[in-house]
């Protein structure tokens, strides 16, 4: 038998070291371009706008003269005292719309996951397809559907279901639009979570608990929770900042915080106020998101 040469183990040591070193730097090389892009065009602007939010007018009382860097925490106080109703409305509308979307998407996702059989892929396509038709066009279509003279409004009016005798230009229209526009963000994660559930577990639940409702509450829903969490977050986050639905489907009274930021930035041109509002919105959204993730006990999204 050939001699065993323990010292041979070190023969290629130096080669190996260079290979190892280059391998250690690989992840950073992979990350660099993408994270660089995000750093320059996401992080830097955020800090720039943090600075802007603390600026003060050059000439007191005349914003047209421009602004200079300051440390005006007062901007935030002004933003809250002036616009807290819009903040509240944004979270309220977004929250209700998210719940509505959950109620609509859940049976749909459940049906596709467990009852669609060979139609499963077709149904998934049907769920996503409407959203290839432009966001704005869809929302304008809702404007037509919910208009005062439309069959939908007249039908509901005939049943005396509408407090204001109309839908368009009411919070109801805004919420309907938001729930609609972010529906695929709710349906797809729900489907993904439900599809992973072994259907025999649900059958076993039916066997052990009897009532379909109890089975749903004790077995199906808890197992689909990751999908519920992901879906509600993916719907709620864009919904809070959205202003298109409020602009097109709501009245002046239904303005959300997105509308305020947009107009402060592009029409009033009060940049410090717009930036302060942006930061408050972002902080509030992130706080809610992190509390929610913590409560739901999942960190899949982060």
């Amino acid at each position: 038998m050939p001699a065993v040469v323990p010292s041979a183990a070190t023969a290629h040591g130096s080669d190996e070291a260079t290979v190892r070193r280059s391998r250690r730097s690989t992840p950073y090389l992979l990350l660099a371009p993408g994270l660089g892009w995000l750093a320059v065009f996401f992080v830097v602007p955020l800090f720039a706008s943090l600075a802007t939010s603390l600026q003060v007018p050059l000439v007191e009382g005349d914003p047209d003269q421009g602004y200079t860097q300051g440390f005006a925490v007062q901007n935030y106080v002004n933003a809250i005292t002036e616009y807290w109703p819009q903040f509240l409305k944004s979270f309220l509308y977004a929250g209700i719309a998210t719940l509505l979307a959950l109620c609509i998407a859940y049976p749909l996702a459940y049906f596709i996951a467990f009852h669609a059989g060979k139609w499963r892929n077709i149904m998934l396509i049907l769920v996503v397809a409407p959203f290839f038709c432009s966001f704005l066009i869809r929302t304008y279509a809702w404007k037509t559907i919910l208009a005062d003279q439309s069959p939908v409004t007249q039908f509901l009016n005939a049943l005396h279901l509408l407090p204001d005798d109309r839908i368009l230009n009411t919070p109801l229209a805004v919420i309907t639009g938001i729930a609609y526009n972010f529906l695929p963000f709710m349906t797809l994660p729900l489907y993904a979570a439900l599809e992973r559930i072994d259907f025999r577990l649900i059958e076993a639940g039916g066997d052990l608990y009897g009532s379909a409702w109890t089975t749903f509450r004790k077995v199906t829903f808890p197992l689909s929770l990751p999908g519920v969490v992901a879906g509600t977050l993916l719907t709620f986050i864009p919904a809070v900042g959205d202003f298109i639905n409020a602009q097109l489907l709501g009245s002046v009274k239904d303005k959300m915080i997105g509308n305020v930021i947009d107009s402060q930035f592009r029409i009033v041109r009060d940049y410090p106020m717009a930036s302060a509002l942006s930061f408050l919105l972002m902080a509030a959204t992130l706080t809610i998101v992190f509390l929610y993730i913590r409560r739901a006990g999942t960190d899949d999204l982060v």
């Binding site: 001699a3 065993v4 040469v5 041979a8 183990a9 290629h12 040591g13």
Partner: peptide, 13 residues
């Protein structure tokens, strides 16, 4: 630590 040899060839690295 240690080495793997096939015949007389050290393949560890």
């Amino acid at each position: 630590e240690g080495a793997i040899l096939i015949g007389e060839q050290d393949v560890t690295q």
